[in-house]
Design a protein around this nucleic acid. Structure first.
Lengths: 229, 229
DNA sequence: ATATAATTGCGTTTATTTTACGCAATTAAC
DNA sequence: GTTAATTGCGTAAAATAAACGCAATTATAT
């Protein structure tokens, strides 16, 4: 009742990073081997027989880019018969987030000739059907940030409030009223205001640092709270 | 750089149906073969080398249950190494909807000894990790019905307004104010009110039939409309 | 030192949306 | 004809979101 299948299973990871200077960026690699040698692509690779999909993602990311992700969720599985010119490959795409601090250290290796962050407004065209995958990931992060607290996964553990505001404005690509935004976010009751001040990042009055309180968030969610920005 | 993989790719389909009398139901099959012989399970099977994932879902569903689905979307991919006791299987789960009319005609065959609709409030425990998959599907349909017009895919093409109201109340498992609900839905401008009256389904005053206008919906969405119930 | 520009912190007012609920009209069943 | 069920249309109050004012704090330039 089952014919021997000839399908390979891969994972891909669309990883986003953020900094106030660079905006929202995505991690891409330049392919070292054919097909699409020299083209930019989403990092990823084949799943080993005894590892979970998530383990495969983390392994491939570390191998190809040196990056450790902070948040990972499944995006979509792409399985059209001819998406890879060599053979049938279905690819389970994940979408991941890294914290600001991790943002710089990249070291390409194995299948990747180079790893690099690209601002999501200045993307090259990609190998395979990776353009489509990336589009879907960008749509997902934009859609999700308003009803799930994933924005905090892109910031450092402690951050000035203005960073959060700037992240939302950048990602949603629209102005955010500072006062209403702060009212809304603080009213959720999931941010702890610390006693430390941010080290002056230039001009202006430095404010306190804030920190996302996941335990409180989980508790509130259990009690029926509805997160929305 | 790539070791020969020994992973099988399957698809599963969680199919929901609805009728005013039976409520929201899900289509399950009783397994004819080991493992889990005689257990209820989600319909599905292995993907053939040259078919897309969606084609595989439709083929398996037709084979195992005789049902043709009206709406199909990908749910999640399950890939933990030991979810199938025989060998490594990753399963791409889809979630589908059928219209009320299709609701009755079931004919089990191939791997299925029997196919049957189960109300989502009276579910048996299932083979493999199918309980988890089904939970996720129920969560998805509940979550999605409020921000995407998928409810109409469960009703017949023409339906009395009260059916729509009853569907939302049943699925969301909370009372819906008839007047506010109608105001909200009609204000979206995506339902055509027909001149036909529903044939009296019992007592009370019969109202007009309504019909979802997908063309209008698509146009409004392009113009930035936001569907929400 | 002092003025200037940048940024934070705390408000108020107005508009919009959601929720709660009243009540007459139509129809089938008794 | 009366009753029960259901539809169709509305209004008032409550909650939420949007628009905007302005003083306080701090680094930088003069």
């Amino acid at each position: 009742m089952k014919t021997t299948q000839n399908i390979q299973v891969a994972v891909d990871a669309i990883v986003f990073g953020y900094s106030k200077e660079e905006g929202v960026s995505v991690l891409l690699i330049k392919r070292k081997y054919a097909p699409f040698k020299g083209n930019w692509a989403i990092p990823g690779g084949f799943v080993l027989d005894d590892e979970s999909l998530e383990e495969a993602v983390e392994r491939e990311l570390l191998e190809e880019t040196g990056v450790k992700i902070n948040y990972l969720e499944q995006l979509y599985t792409f399985g059209k018969p001819n998406r890879d010119p060599r053979r049938r490959v279905i690819s389970v795409a994940y979408f991941g987030l890294v914290k600001s601090k991790q943002f710089e250290k990249l070291k390409a290796s194995t299948d990747a000739e180079e790893a690099k962050w690209f601002n999501i407004k200045e993307l090259p065209s990609l190998a395979f059907d990776h353009d489509k995958i990336l589009d879907m990931a960008i749509e997902r992060i934009r859609g999700k940030i308003v009803y799930q607290p994933i924005g905090f996964e892109l910031l450092d553990k402690k951050f000035p409030f203005s960073d959060l505001e700037h992240l939302y404005a950048t990602l949603l690509d629209r102005p955010v009223d500072r006062r209403n935004f702060k009212k809304k976010v603080m009213h959720l009751g999931i941010l702890d205001e610390l006693d430390e001040k941010a080290k002056s990042s230039g001009a202006g009055r430095p404010g306190n640092l804030f920190q996302f309180n996941k335990a409180t968030y989980d508790k509130l969610i259990r009690d029926g709270m509805h997160f929305e920005i």
